[in-house]
Design a protein around this nucleic acid. Structure first.
Length: 477
DNA sequence: ATGTGC
């Protein structure tokens, strides 16, 4: 039923399954498509196509794999007036995202002190499941975090106002309303600000390995051999609890509004309904918490580098960009030649706006939005920019990473800790982690080839490559 | 992803 309609484009027509409102479309190479066929991800693309108000296509990016309700790598836009919002299209870790920092240091300067640096960073940035941070918030103060996002952190002295310009949405969504976040969710957030978490979350010291576009790289203050830092984390227990709370609300709302669910995990409410708007407000709170989290951790990273390389380094570590890859956004897009307001769900997908989009900060107005694509542990990561193709084909969206090919359990079963560490060691990659199992879950073998994923989005004209970064040291939760 | 699982 799925068929290839173009190079790297696979489609399933309307009517392939009862209730589909739009066709399904997956951006993939042959290898990647076959991998997606092997799990339930393609079925999930079809399921998403049945949701009310979905526009044009149910889409998936080449890092597609099975997820909760939506596939990870899934992108779907819904009419703001007549469509739904669904937590399954955003994910449990609301505003899980990636931030890229750049230092003035070279590999030669960092390599001899890499071990010390990683030890310091481990101490400065608490990580692991249930990890608690150094900041203990009152509920009153947490409410400010939820409504102000990264701006709260900067006002408290974590980083600079210049950082804020370089974050998607300036690290603050204005529709956040802390009264829509449950007490339980808040309790989980009180001690988790400034913590990394676990799973695929990491902090990585990298070096710029290759430049693909020297002019754009220069505008982004990036040069060959330079050391960068990549941070991947989200909204921790708070976001998870918001998702859990509202999935329950949405199940009831689906019944109330007569929304037919082909999968309960797609529980949804009309975007403009009370339930939809409450989740919308709470989801933005969780997103803001995640941006504050990455902002606080950025400050910790600067402090850590200062301990190893001297105080003056602090001001020289700058933010390149920070992207959310588990989120829904209200955006204006062209639909059949008309501008419309749509709710774009990106679930393991990154916003990828092209140059001159009004939402971009002036520094990136001419280059297009920086898109940060982390590879798996031990493989390269990429810095891309958004191209007009993404506006035309994918609601200004692209992939978010390599994407799994093995489940966590499978990775633990098939992996070998000694071999994994040997392989990383051979590549000169130093690793610090609290949990052996986490490392096995995140083994490179458990992921698709990030080069191939990036090749697909580039070949389709969604993005162009700016730089590739190679890991030197990794801190894992 | 997650004070981790029906």
């Amino acid at each position: 039923m799925w068929k290839q309609v173009d190079k790297f484009v696979y489609e399933i027509p309307l009517g392939a399954k009862e209730g589909m409102r739009v066709p399904g479309r997956v951006f993939a190479s042959e290898t990647i498509f076959k991998q997606a066929e092997a799990d339930k991800a393609l079925e999930q693309v079809v399921n998403v196509a049945t949701l009310s108000g979905i526009l044009r296509y149910s889409l998936a990016m080449p890092d597609i794999h099975w997820g909760y309700g939506f596939p990870i790598g899934g992108v779907a836009a819904f009419d703001a007036d007549h469509g739904v919002i669904t937590p399954g299209g955003i994910g449990f870790d609301i505003n899980c995202g990636v931030r890229l920092l750049v230092t003035p240091l070279t590999e030669e300067q960092v390599r001899p002190k890499l071990g010390d640096l990683l030890d310091v960073l481990c101490k400065e940035v608490p990580s692991g499941v249930g990890s608690e941070g150094f900041i203990k918030l009152s509920v009153r103060e947490l409410d400010k975090v939820l409504e102000m996002g990264a701006k709260w952190a900067v006002e408290q002295g974590y980083g600079t106002f210049e950082d804020l310009e370089r974050l998607e949405s300036q690290g603050q969504l204005k529709g956040a309303d802390a009264s829509k976040v449950s007490k339980r969710a808040k309790e989980r957030g009180l001690e988790q600000l400034g913590t990394l978490g676990s799973g695929n979350h990491f902090l990585e010291v990298q070096k710029v390995d290759e430049l693909f576009d020297e002019a754009v790289a220069k505008e982004m203050r990036l040069s060959l051999g330079q050391v960068t830092i990549m941070l991947h984390t989200g909204s921790r227990g708070l976001g998870h609890q918001v998702a859990t709370d509202y999935i329950d609300v949405m199940l009831k709302a689906s019944k109330k509004y007569g929304i037919k669910l082909v999968d309960k995990q797609l529980a949804a409410a009309p975007f403009k309904s009370e339930e939809g708007q409450n989740y919308w407000a709470a989801m933005q709170c969780a997103a803001n918490f995640a941006w504050a989290n990455r902002q606080v951790i950025t400050d910790y990273i600067r402090k850590g580098f200062a301990k190893v390389f001297g105080n003056e380094i602090k001001d020289q570590i700058t933010v390149i960009y920070d992207v959310a890859h588990n989120i829904a956004k209200l955006e204006k897009h062209m639909v059949d030649g008309m501008e419309r307001e749509v709710v774009v769900h990106r679930k393991g997908a990154t916003r990828s706006f092209s140059a001159h989009q009004p939402e971009l900060p002036s520094i990136y107005g001419n280059t297009g939005q920086p898109v940060i694509i982390p590879g798996s542990m031990g493989s390269s990561s990429f810095l891309l920019v958004g191209l007009p193709g993404s506006m035309e084909k994918s609601w200004g969206s692209t992939c978010h990473g390599a994407g799994r090919v093995m489940s966590r359990k499978e990775a633990i079963r098939k992996g070998n800790y000694g071999t994994l560490m040997d392989n990383l060691g051979e590549k000169g990659i130093l690793v610090r982690s609290a949990e052996r199992e986490t490392l096995l879950e995140e083994a490179p073998e458990a992921y698709k080839d990030v080069d191939e994923v990036v090749h697909v989005v580039e070949a389709l004209g969604l993005n162009s490559k700016v730089a590739r970064m190679r890991p030197m040291g990794v801190v894992k939760g």
